[in-house]
């Protein structure tokens, strides 16, 4: 018997993505991201910072994923290159990822079926993000403000993962929205 209101999966179009590497202690990097993105670079492991339509997710001690409105990538890349004096790598990876929102009362159950990470709100409250195993692929899972989750995964796995999520969510009832 389906448990209402189930799970909602909705792909998020129009997201640009940049992979950023640099020295977290480099003031020019911190200033440049603050100026360019309007948000701090998160230095707390497995956390994110955001401002408006832009989000910076911690991926590693010197690595972040910058999520910006599509079309902003080259402006952000250029401004960072101009402003940062320390080690830097900026790569537009927008084409490589699918972004989706996973919401509904049983969203966490779908995550539990897919990943060995502990998604309990005590361990994974809004403000956290985690790269982990997701089914037989991987994903970046972001706990966002409203208690739902953003999933970011590699485009080539999208057909597989959407099938997987639909199957995992079936017992809860799941409207699927793919773009």
């Amino acid at each position: 018997m389906p448990e209402a209101p189930g799970v909602e999966y909705r792909e998020i179009p129009g997201r640009g993505c940049l992979n950023l590497r640099g020295d977290a202690d480099d003031p020019t990097l911190r200033d440049a991201t603050a100026t360019t993105l309007g948000t701090e670079l998160p230095t707390e492991p497995c956390s994110w910072q955001s401002s408006g339509d832009t989000r910076a997710c911690w991926l590693g001690p010197d690595e972040w994923l910058l999520i910006v409105p599509d079309g902003e990538q080259s402006r952000v890349e250029q401004q960072l290159r101009e402003a940062v004096s320390g080690p830097l790598s900026v790569v537009d990876v927008s084409g490589g990822f699918v972004h989706a929102n996973l919401g509904g009362d049983n969203a966490a159950k779908v995550l539990q079926k897919s990943s060995p990470y502990d998604f309990h709100p005590r361990n994974f409250p809004p403000g956290r993000c985690v790269q982990t195993v997701f089914a037989q692929a991987g994903a970046l899972v972001v706990a966002i403000e409203d208690g739902s989750f953003v999933l970011i995964f590699r485009r080539s796995y999208a057909d597989y993962l959407v099938h997987w999520i639909a199957d995992a969510a079936e017992e809860y009832g799941y409207p699927m929205h793919r773009t």
Binding site: P45, C46, V130, T132
Partner: peptide, 11 residues
């Protein structure tokens, strides 16, 4: 030591 969390072996 980087993520500063306990994670499962399959990661």
């Amino acid at each position: 030591p980087y993520c500063q969390e306990m994670r499962s072996e399959e990661e």
